[in-house]
Design a protein around this nucleic acid. Structure first.
Length: 301
DNA sequence: CGACTTTGACCTGCGC
DNA sequence: GCGCAGGTCAAAGTCG
């Protein structure tokens, strides 16, 4: 990306994700999120970030990209200026403020740019391994297992990275209800953070979406959620009760009233040709709050 | 009994 | 090469 843009923008369909998070007690240094994806993530937290009145200061999201989109991995940078190269901690006016919400759209797409699927040579290698395995015994099977494990690449191969979205929520619960069912498959202590990081996978068959959940150790009320991959199915649970289920979902639940949240994420009068909002509804904080609370409610099982 | 969580071990990538 | 940290596996445990 050109990297020069300093205002929030979208590229393509608004295949981004918004995070709306509130003030950090210490005044909000963006680099306070330890353990968050150091490789690529960036956050913007403004000292003025503040959210009042809501039981759970949620930030959320938006529509991701259509799973069938021909350009699923368009660069998306929201709010944090120059994306993964943006200096963390830049409370430099990119923060978006609304009357009721202070939103800092630090949604970050964390993309391994060069990964776009296995190359043919890899496939050939895999086939070879398969043949080997067919001939070999137990050992061969073990080898085969390793070689074919999509999560464990052979040496020298770059690990493939799905597009990733990270966002922060202010929540008491770690695992936010987002309409999908997740199975926890791991938990790790994070260096420099007293809070562990949890790893979840979508339980749907043939859906390999993962998410990581961790708390900011600087502000324990902030939960950092990182999604990786695209859902290949509809959300089994309609958290928001809306009629928004449409296409196979991106990472972010499609049933979220992203349009409203999007609205929240931009200051009044903000326009950007790259942003395609369905139809800008008038700010309706009451409605938003309804959404937020219902979301919060459903998160606390 | 199936679905899910917990947790120690293992693997991989990366910096020194 | 080594050590560290992140990420994943898989067996065992828990729960409804």
């Amino acid at each position: 990306m050109s990297g020069e843009r300093t205002e929030p923008y979208f590229h393509g369909h608004y295949d981004g994700l918004f995070s709306i998070f509130s003030q950090k007690p210490d005044g909000g240094r963006a680099d306070g999120v330890q353990g968050f994806d150091h490789q690529t993530a960036s956050h913007v937290l403004s000292p003025s970030d503040r959210l009042h009145g809501s039981p759970m200061d949620y930030l959320l999201l938006a529509r991701g990209f259509d799973a069938s989109s021909s350009q699923p991995d368009d660069d998306v940078v929201v709010g944090s200026g120059s994306g993964k190269n943006a200096p963390a901690g830049a409370g430099d006016g990119k923060t978006l403020v609304t009357p009721n919400f202070s939103t800092s759209s630090s949604v970050t797409e964390l993309v391994g740019e060069e990964d776009s699927g296995p190359c043919k040579t890899d496939q050939q290698k895999q086939e070879e391994e398969e043949e080997k395995q067919a001939e070999g015994g137990e050992e061969g099977r073990e080898e085969f297992k390793k070689a074919n494990n999509p999560r464990r690449k052979k040496k020298g191969e770059k690990r493939e990275r799905e597009p990733r979205f990270a966002f922060m929520t202010r929540s008491e619960v770690d695992h936010l209800e987002d309409g999908y069912r997740w199975r926890k498959y791991g938990q790790k202590a994070v260096k420099s953070s007293p809070y562990p990081r949890s790893y979840y996978r979508c339980t749907a068959q043939s859906c390999d979406v993962k998410k990581r959940v961790e708390r900011s150790h600087q502000d324990p009320t902030v939960v950092i959620t990182t999604y990786e991959g695209h859902h290949t199915h509809h959300s089994p649970v309609n958290v928001w009760g809306g009629a928004h289920l449409s296409s196979p979902s991106p990472v972010i639940p499609t049933n979220v009233r992203h349009d409203l949240l999007l609205q929240q994420a931009f200051p009044a009068g903000y326009t950007n040709p790259n942003v395609h909002l369905p139809r800008p509804p008038p700010p309706d904080y009451g409605l938003l709050q309804d959404i937020v609370t219902s979301f919060a409610h459903s998160s606390q099982r």
